[in-house]
Computed example of a mutant assay.
Amino acid sequence: MKRSKEETYETIIKLKEVARKHFTEHGYAATVLDEIVKEASLTRGAVYHHFGSKKGLFLAVLESVQREVADKVESEAAQSENLWDQLILGCLAFVNAAVEEKNKRIMLIDGPAVLGWETWRSMDEQGSMRLLHEQLQLMQQQGYFESVSIEALTHILSGALNESALWIAQMPNVEESVEETFKIISLLLDRFKS
């Protein structure tokens, strides 16, 4: 009997939701595929059919996490019409989303370790880094950052945000650490402002 597209979609969503919970709570290495399929009331065959492997399932979960973070960045940046404020709001949204419990282990720790640095970096470039680059380009066209390489600034700022998120995720007072980070990020960006 053929499964409908809707049933297939529901199976994929269910597997990703349950897997995300397990990857968040236990990490990739300690997550057991049998526990995921049991909780999802599915079979290992469903995982292999839709994702190929545990690693393929993890990749799909990471893609979902990165999409959510990118959506959060866009949503927060859109709260202002001022380009400078959009940049700051977007950067702050990225860090806050990255350090959320449901995201940090998958996105910042296991992502690069499981998929490899190059794959993880490529995914980051297509998500949040792409949004950052677009914002910086727009700002340069509007007279900000006139004598600065936007490519270099994008990579430097993205690296600072990723490293800050890793640092903040380990701090006992996340809110205070985010505040400290954004004082420094704002000072850094002010130095490049035309």
Rank of each mutant, 00 (worst) to 15 (best):
M1I: 08
E6G: 02
E7D: 11
E7Q: 13
Y9V: 04
Y9F: 10
Y9L: 10
E10W: 01
E10V: 00
E10G: 00
T11S: 12
I12Y: 02
I12L: 03
L15W: 04
K16C: 06
V18C: 09
A19L: 09
R20L: 04
F23I: 05
F23R: 02
F23T: 05
E25Q: 14
E25L: 11
G27A: 10
A30T: 05
T31A: 12
T31I: 02
V32R: 15
L33E: 03
D34G: 15
E35F: 08
V37W: 08
K38Y: 11
E39N: 14
S41V: 08
L42V: 05
T43W: 03
R44T: 04
R44Q: 09
G45P: 03
V47A: 02
Y48D: 00
H49I: 01
H49N: 08
G52L: 03
K54C: 14
K55F: 03
G56R: 10
G56T: 12
L57P: 06
V61A: 07
V65D: 08
V65M: 01
R67N: 15
A70V: 05
A70I: 03
K72F: 02
E74V: 02
E74P: 01
A77P: 02
Q79N: 09
S80C: 10
D85E: 14
D85L: 07
Q86F: 03
L87H: 05
I88N: 02
G90S: 03
C91K: 03
A93T: 10
F94L: 12
V95I: 10
A98W: 07
E100D: 11
E101Y: 13
K102C: 04
R105N: 05
R105C: 03
L108Q: 03
D110A: 06
G111Q: 04
G111Y: 00
P112F: 06
A113K: 15
V114P: 05
V114M: 06
V114F: 07
L115A: 06
L115Q: 05
G116P: 12
W117A: 08
R121F: 11
M123L: 15
D124K: 12
D124R: 13
E125Q: 09
S128C: 08
S128Q: 13
M129R: 13
L131M: 07
L131T: 00
L132E: 00
L132I: 01
H133I: 01
H133A: 04
E134W: 04
E134D: 14
E134H: 11
L136G: 10
L136S: 14
L138D: 04
M139L: 01
F145V: 08
F145K: 04
E146N: 09
E146Y: 08
V148F: 06
I150Q: 05
L153A: 09
L153M: 14
T154I: 03
H155S: 12
I156D: 10
L161C: 06
L166A: 10
L166V: 07
W167G: 04
I168Y: 02
P172A: 07
N173E: 15
V174L: 10
E176H: 06
S177N: 07
E180G: 01
E180K: 15
E180H: 07
E180A: 15
F182H: 11
K183E: 13
I184L: 10
I184K: 14
S186L: 09
S186Q: 14
D190N: 12
K193L: 14
